[in-house]
Design a binder for these strands. Structure first.
Length: 499
RNA sequence: GCUCCCAUCGUCUAGCGGUUAGGACCCAGGGUUUUCAACCCUGUAACCGGAGUUCGAGUCUCCGUGGGAGCGCCA
């Protein structure tokens, strides 16, 4: 039996999701139990969404919760490179190899044709999926169109019938009809692979023995098994973990919950407490004690004990656990060090002082006025969240559009933040003050505070989103239906009058 | 719509045919404490439904129901 090798394969397309740490935790546990290697691989095959800064914060965040890996983009290893964008030739070769062997084919369908197709299928209540329009093109035509530089993709030829038996370590066998999977694109027209090709090629070449990933992948496993078969490789063992859920039971998303590791760090949680809590989400404590370290857990870890139902991420319990870590696991000195490493340092305080200086009479005014920058949460008065002559509902909707607008800001600097907030006022055709006052209240807990744009900048995207969300909830929230309607209107292209 | 996964207190869970269904978070009450936390004690609260197997079902089987996920040139 070969050595156990497990990988964590996140995409650097946004703040690091707690689910990434959760999956990494169980992967690491498995590796520790059998004594193998844990690999970090960056899946940056989406050129439009992947960003290097996200990769940096990803690595930092994973280290912060206490995850460690033996091979990865930052430390190298024998099977690198560990960044998929640096392995393109490998995927392209393998895709061509599949075409030559008759397991895949070129497809010239345009995005427009595909979306029309999907619309029609959805209208006729048919199963959504590619109709194999390009599967039987004559060889000469393909050659000609490829040679002429026409945009095309390579698709996997899935079996039309039969049942795929997926062995899942936690669930036993899962049977899925091949017909449920359509001909997946393997190589995109920009020459980058899709997840499905890249994951199989890399897992093979990196000698991955166990694929431990979220349950959302279970239904696409047949595609991966077909690829292993086509290449003549032995597939790895699969373990699909249950999902982390919002309070309403849906897949955890930043729309309803703080989901990023950066948020929890910034809010003052401890990395080891967060990881401990994440373990509890799917793994029952060994005995009565629910507080345990990674080392303690790995000693007794048994995958069979993983619970299969998705778990709701419960802030209350995390707060309780984190409190125990603060009180029981750290000396006062260590807490001091943690706080310095957190935000109580010159770097951070020196950014606040200029914002508050003009609002201070004595030095003693500083801490109370700065408190909201460090607080876990604030509780603004409803009156401060609603501008005069507006309703609570108006304010809720405005807050929601402010969240969307700020989420779309890629360069988190003063100019872009200001532009985004002004555009919210513009969208509603409100005086800027009617936007800035509630937003300030939502962030600072009071309508009086330092300048909004600087405050937003300093609090950071994740904290800002969460405080806006909390303000919305304080005002009664927004129904799903209303939210969808608002979003539709908000996403309409807007025509700004030209001067 | 089609397919798959899942199902014990509000939440996280123990239970692997015979239990007064246990623990933790939350909440409530009490104790301790100069205050507040912390800590300790007590309490409220659950086996989704229906058949079947069995002397006996939370536990096994089937059928419902409910929830979730997937069906992208996103991962």
């Amino acid at each position: 039996m070969s050595e156990v090798r497990v990988r964590l394969a996140p995409s650097p397309t946004g703040p690091t999701h707690v689910g990434t740490a959760y999956q990494g935790l169980f992967g690491l546990l498995h590796v520790k139990k059998y004594g193998g290697q844990f690999v970090l691989r960056i899946e940056d095959t989406d050129q439009t969404r992947s960003r290097r800064e996200y990769e940096d914060s990803l690595i930092q965040s994973l280290r912060w919760v206490g995850l460690e890996w033996d091979e990865g983009p930052d430390i190298g290893g024998p099977y690198g490179p560990y960044r998929q964008s640096e392995r393109l030739a490998l995927y392209q070769d393998h895709a061509r190899q599949l075409v030559e062997a008759g397991h895949a084919y070129y497809c010239f369908c345009t995005a427009e044709r595909l979306s029309n197709l999907r619309a029609k299928q959805s209208e006729n209540k048919e199963r959504l999926g590619y109709d194999r329009h390009c599967v039987h093109l004559p060889a000469e035509e393909i050659q000609q169109r490829v040679a002429s530089g026409e945009r095309c993709v390579i698709r996997l030829k899935m079996p039309r019938q039969g049942t795929c038996v997926v062995r899942d370590r936690l669930r036993g066998t899962v049977e899925l009809d091949y017909a449920q999977s359509d001909d997946q694109v393997l190589l995109k027209s920009d020459g980058f692979p899709t997840y499905h090709l890249a994951v199989v090629v890399d897992d093979y070449h990196m000698r991955i023995t166990h694929v431990i990933r979220g349950e959302e992948w279970i239904t696409s496993t047949p595609k991966h098994l077909v690829l292993y078969e086509a290449f003549g490789w032995d597939p790895p063992e699969y373990m699909h973990l249950p999902l982390l859920l919002n309070t309403d039971g849906t897949k955890m998303s930043k729309r309803r919950n703080p989901t990023s590791i950066e948020y929890y760090r910034r809010s003052g949680y401890l990395g080891d407490a967060l990881l401990n809590y994440l373990a509890l989400m799917a793994y029952p404590p060994l005995g009565e004690e629910e507080k345990f370290s990674l080392a303690q857990l790995s000693e007794h870890f048994d995958a069979e004990r993983i619970n299969l139902g998705g778990s709701i991420f419960d802030l209350e319990k995390l707060n309780w656990l984190n409190g125990r870590y603060v009180r029981e696991d750290r000396t006062a000195e260590q807490i001091m060090d943690e706080m310095k490493a957190w935000l109580l340092n010159d770097e951070f305080i020196s950014q606040i002082v200029p914002l508050l200086q003009q609002r201070m009479e004595t030095l003693g005014d500083f801490m109370p006025k700065a408190a909201f920058f460090l607080a876990r949460e604030v509780s603004p008065e409803v009156d401060d969240l609603v501008p005069k002559k507006r309703t609570a509902d108006d304010a809720v909707q405005m807050l929601q559009t402010a969240i969307w607008t700020l989420d779309a800001v890629l360069e988190w600097d003063r100019a872009h933040v200001e532009e985004a907030i002004r555009s919210v006022a513009q969208y509603w055709e409100w005086p800027v003050r009617d936007v800035t006052v509630p937003l300030t209240a939502a962030l600072a807990g009071s309508r009086v505070g330092p300048p909004l744009f600087d405050t937003v900048l300093l609090l950071g995207q994740d904290i800002v989103r969460m405080r806006f969300l909390q303000a919305m909830n304080a005002l009664g929230g927004l129904s799903k239906k209303k939210s969808a309607k608002l979003e539709k209107a908000w996403r309409q292209p807007r025509h700004v009058a030209e001067t």
